[in-house]
């Protein structure tokens, strides 16, 4: 049994790939290379922070000429369709078009040079019409796929691995574990290094979200109340894939428990909220 554990800086965070199998180390390295390549490919399409990514090109087009129809790659179309679905299911609370607000408030870099006075000019996800691989909007919008892009990258990387390999891919809190049954993962719930709590996995994907690394404070912007929600601690969601798990952490962060529960149920997901003292409670 060989094992290899690698970590590369990608998607604006650290991507860990750990693989094990009854294969020579060379084969594990080759498989990890394929998985990293796949994440790089997804980054090229979906990274908000890179000006040359397909997402940034789309954002620029959605600012300058929202009404004209744009054609999307399969990656971008898949992630946007899912973001749209969660937007509808959460009654508009989950909205990736809050990026314009986050840019104006300096939570995201303003590399698209949008004017600071223009927040009212931007629309929301409900101004979008998305059909298959084409998109257009009635108002200018900016998307940040943030976590769901990372989740999607993790899912795609896992899909590229051969069946006889076990292990996990972890992208800044969005994680997929292949043989997840009876495995434990430490949840980091506060800034101090000892703030770790072991949880037993309940599904193949686990996404955790918190704002303890954010010097500027909370980034959970609620589009309805126009306020930032504060989360002290960590929200962890177990789901069938990492993209869903990541989106659902934001649903829990922004919605009332009783409204979030049916959404979790719809996706066969469950959640654990750990406060900043390390006490956990379950939501599902």
């Amino acid at each position: 049994m060989h094992q290899i554990k690698r970590c590369q800086p990608l998607l604006g965070t650290f991507i860990e790939i750990s693989l094990q199998a009854k294969l020579p180390e060379k084969a594990l390295i080759a498989s990890a290379n394929i998985a990293f390549k796949e994440i790089e490919r997804v980054q090229q399409a979906l990274n908000f922070h890179r000006k040359d990514s397909e997402l940034s090109q789309l954002n620029m087009a959605l600012i300058s000429a929202p009404n004209t129809t744009k054609v999307l790659s399969d990656d971008l179309a898949t992630v946007l369709a899912f973001a749209h679905e969660i937007h509808l299911v959460s009654a508009g609370v989950y909205d990736i078009s809050i990026a314009s607000k986050l840019m104006i408030d300096k939570h995201l870099p303003n590399h698209l040079d949008i004017p600071h006075s223009s927040s009212a000019a931007f629309g929301s996800f409900s101004d979008i019409s998305l059909q298959g691989n084409s998109i257009c909007s009635t108002k200018p919008v900016v998307f940040d796929l943030g976590g769901i892009a990372k989740g999607y990258a993790v899912d795609q990387a896992i899909a590229k691995l051969p069946e006889n390999i076990s292990g996990y891919v972890n992208a800044g809190g969005d994680m997929r574990v292949i043989d997840w049954k009876n495995q434990q993962v430490s949840i980091k719930y506060a800034r101090r290094p000892s703030a770790l709590k072991a949880l037993t996995l309940r599904n193949t994907a686990l996404a955790s979200s918190g704002s303890y690394y954010q010097a500027q404070g909370s980034q959970y912007f609620h589009p309805k109340t126009q306020r930032y929600n504060t989360i002290k601690g960590c929200i962890s969601v177990f789901a069938n894939n990492a993209m869903q798990a990541d989106a659902l952490t934001k649903v829990i962060a922004l919605m009332k428990r009783k409204d979030a529960k049916p959404i979790l149920k719809r996706y066969g997901a469950s959640a654990i909220i750990t406060n900043r003292f390390g006490f956990s409670r379950q939501v599902n």
Partner: peptide, 13 residues
């Protein structure tokens, strides 16, 4: 030494 950790996104800036 920690095996697996899931937490908030840490920037690689």
């Amino acid at each position: 030494q920690i095996k697996n950790i899931s937490g908030a996104t840490l920037s690689c800036r």
